[in-house]
């Protein structure tokens, strides 16, 4: 019996050496160590042995079993290692193939720019206020101190709306030429102090490389006691720092708007040339960004505010122009063509 056990070990060593893969090793394990395996069969005859023999043969059997187990475990490690080496040695992927497609959409340049501008003013404590685009002459012009037959109306060629359904006077309905009627609506619906921005679409009869008949504006209005022109300068300069960056400078030039007095244009130093002069800034070093001014007392009154107690400032800027300057566009019309090849760049 002792010899049979030793023989088992010898033949197992031989067969394990020849085993090529995990399956063959498993087969050998079952054959030698399984419940009905060869070791079990040999040990099945133990019962016939004398107690002394049983003890000595038992010692041998335990040793053989342990060796068989170690042998097979080693064989498993060996084939696994071989398999790992084989896998690592195989042909590599073509890593130059593009990755698997994932859906990816893009924000429109105008809405993205508008949101960025709004965020900058929100950080300065401004609230978003919106008004209608189909507007009344009374709010778009009259309340903003632009009476009929005033030459200032030449600056804003107007689309008029045929509104037979409405209760408004026939010649009164138009597409707002600026977001400024929002100022009046805000004042008439909220008590002072007021700190709002009015983003949205506006319309003028105009179409060329720098004008589209529809465009986006963002308007701002701050009214309180004791608001000064210095506050206007400080607030808009803070916006420029927040939106364009701390390296950009501002300057204010006198200008004219019916709804502000004094009025100003704000320029920002050109970011392309750092103010040295280039094609973008027409070699002036400055970019015209927005119009602004102290709210005209007639406008405060039209909004139902007490112009003897309150002052304020307002500004308005074109969103497309900002987007074009930021991203190097030279034809505004490309913004509304909505060509996917354009949209996917931003």
């Amino acid at each position: 019996m002792r010899d049979r056990l030793e023989g088992l070990l010898t033949s197992a060593r031989e067969e394990v050496r020849r085993a090529a893969d995990a399956a063959q090793v498993e087969t050998l394990r079952v054959r030698y160590l399984g419940r009905k395996g060869e070791l079990a069969q040999v040990l099945g005859g133990m019962g016939k042995l004398s107690p002394e023999d049983r003890r000595s043969v038992g010692e041998v059997a335990n040793r053989v079993k342990a060796e068989l187990e170690a042998l097979l475990a080693g064989a498993v490690r060996a084939v696994e290692e071989a398999a790992l080496q084989a896998e690592l040695a195989g042909p590599p992927l073509d890593v130059t193939l593009p990755g698997r497609q994932q859906p990816s959409g893009h924000r429109h340049l105008v809405s993205r720019t508008l949101e960025d501008v709004i965020r900058s003013f929100q950080r300065l404590g401004f609230d978003v206020f919106t008004g209608p685009e189909v507007e009344l002459d009374a709010l778009n012009f009259e309340a903003l101190n632009i009476p009929a037959d005033h030459p200032a109306r030449d600056m804003q060629d107007t689309f008029y709306v045929d509104a037979p359904w409405s209760k408004a006077p026939a010649d009164q309905v138009l597409l707002r030429t600026h977001t400024s009627p929002g100022q009046i609506r805000a004042m008439r619906s909220r008590p002072p102090p007021l700190r709002i921005v009015v983003p949205g679409k506006a319309y003028r009869v105009d179409s060329d490389a720098t004008h589209t008949p529809m465009f986006h504006q963002i308007e701002g209005l701050l009214v309180d006691r004791g608001i000064t022109f210095a506050d206007l300068k400080g607030t808009l300069t803070a916006f420029v720092t927040s939106f364009f960056g701390a390296d950009r400078k501002t300057r204010f030039r006198p200008s004219y708007f019916q709804f502000t007095e004094p009025s100003a244009e704000m320029d920002v130093s050109c970011g392309t040339c750092a103010g040295k002069g280039c094609r973008v800034c027409k070699f002036t070093g400055w970019l015209e960004i927005l119009g602004c001014g102290m709210v005209h007392p007639n406008v405060l009154t039209a909004g139902g505010y007490d112009a003897s107690q309150l002052t304020g400032f307002a500004w308005g800027m074109g969103v497309e122009r900002i987007a074009m300057l930021r991203h190097g566009l030279d034809d505004i019309r490309s913004l509304f063509e909505n060509d996917i090849r354009f949209l996917e760049q931003f």
């Binding site: 809405s111 008949p213 529809m214 909505n338 949209l343 996917e344």
Partner: peptide
């Protein structure tokens, strides 16, 4: 992709 179109 977001588009922005003329209202008219």
């Amino acid at each position: 992709d977001e588009v922005v179109n003329y209202s008219f």
